[in-house]
Write a protein that binds this DNA or RNA. Sequence first.
DNA 1: ACAATTAATGACCGAAAGGTCACTAATTGA
DNA 2: TCAATTAGTGACCTTTCGGTCATTAATTGT
Lengths: 211, 211
Amino acid sequence: MEPASEPTGKPRRRRKEARPHEIIVAGLAEFAERGFAATRLEDVAARAGIVKGTIYRYFDSKEMLFEAALSSGIGSAFEALPEIVADYEGSTLDLLRLLVGRLYETLFTPEVELLARIIISEGQRFPAVAELYYRLLVGKGRDVLRRIMERGLARGELLPSPLSATPEALIGPVVMAIVWNTIFGRLDPIEPKRFLDAHLDLLEKALGHNG
Amino acid sequence: MEPASEPTGKPRRRRKEARPHEIIVAGLAEFAERGFAATRLEDVAARAGIVKGTIYRYFDSKEMLFEAALSSGIGSAFEALPEIVADYEGSTLDLLRLLVGRLYETLFTPEVELLARIIISEGQRFPAVAELYYRLLVGKGRDVLRRIMERGLARGELLPSPLSATPEALIGPVVMAIVWNTIFGRLDPIEPKRFLDAHLDLLEKALGHNG
DNA sequence: ACAATTAATGACCGAAAGGTCACTAATTGA
DNA sequence: TCAATTAGTGACCTTTCGGTCATTAATTGT
């Protein structure tokens, strides 16, 4: 179907250092699109500009590549948060606004959406992956939320209540927005900015004491 | 490993009417556990007490079985809601409480959790399935929410705001709870009742005008 | 410059699984 | 009761794909 039109000058370069990362990037794209089971290593290789066999020089199996790919993507996006919370001077509401704003900024970005798609669709089937993300991201976010609420209680800005005991509910809307876009994005995408506005409005109504 | 201990009296019954449903139930369990691609039709058959070939008497392909299974599970759980909203006498807050309470009751049930797991993990890859659920469930829920907000605005109970324009944010916590349990349920399950309390608390704080 | 090393290749293997079909036997109905 | 019908079976076909390995050629070190 393609005679010798383009001789495909394939000089066969050796690039020991660059390869693993390229394979991982290609893998993430394929895994996000097709899911783990339906992803073909040959397609990953093609996307990375190499051949299937080469993958095995860097990764022992499809599953190892999968886990390596998901591990590689864990940014330290929330690394700075505990410090920010500790040093913060303003109101609890403003602190929550800051946190939620960061969440939208961080999560609605092409690379993170890619990762989110994979975790949402495969997380339950790969305990190691779920645990990794729980420990390094979700659990940390939870701790930060808890600390914010404790701080609010200590400063007398809020009273003990079901909500202060389960502050995770406060970030429900962001999670919903991501999942929604993952599943129904083609039919009826959520505009992050619009959702953020509604979310901030909800926080303010629920926790602001003005009037 | 099992000589002739139990001769397995397999009388080979013919049950034209019961079979399709049994296959669908077996399929749902397998699809939820392993995902579409990794599910083996032989396992589905075994679970249904038949043999792989028999599946093909009722379904043309694995994909057809998948779609049939997901279609079959669509309960009319929200069917009654529009009427309830139309006839409701109480406050907007109470109406929302009612709605949210129903959501928790409906969604945190073994069968629905099974379906949720499948939709969350495979929805993006099966546009037909996503569309079906969007039209029959999600879209309807959205309409109900919108009508509740319109009603609240008309009755002067709430003012136009980012939140009233994007009321989906109000049910974020339920969605989060389901997705959380799907992905991190083994590590740190969310107790629906506790989350419901926090959610109701959030609604009340955000929309109640007392004090 | 050239030998040793090793990244990269692509042909190949074997198992797994979707799907088919000729056959078996339970059901139906005349 | 017995022939016609058809649900159910299981052996089989075919393709796909994860994984292997002998071979090739780019790189490295001396």
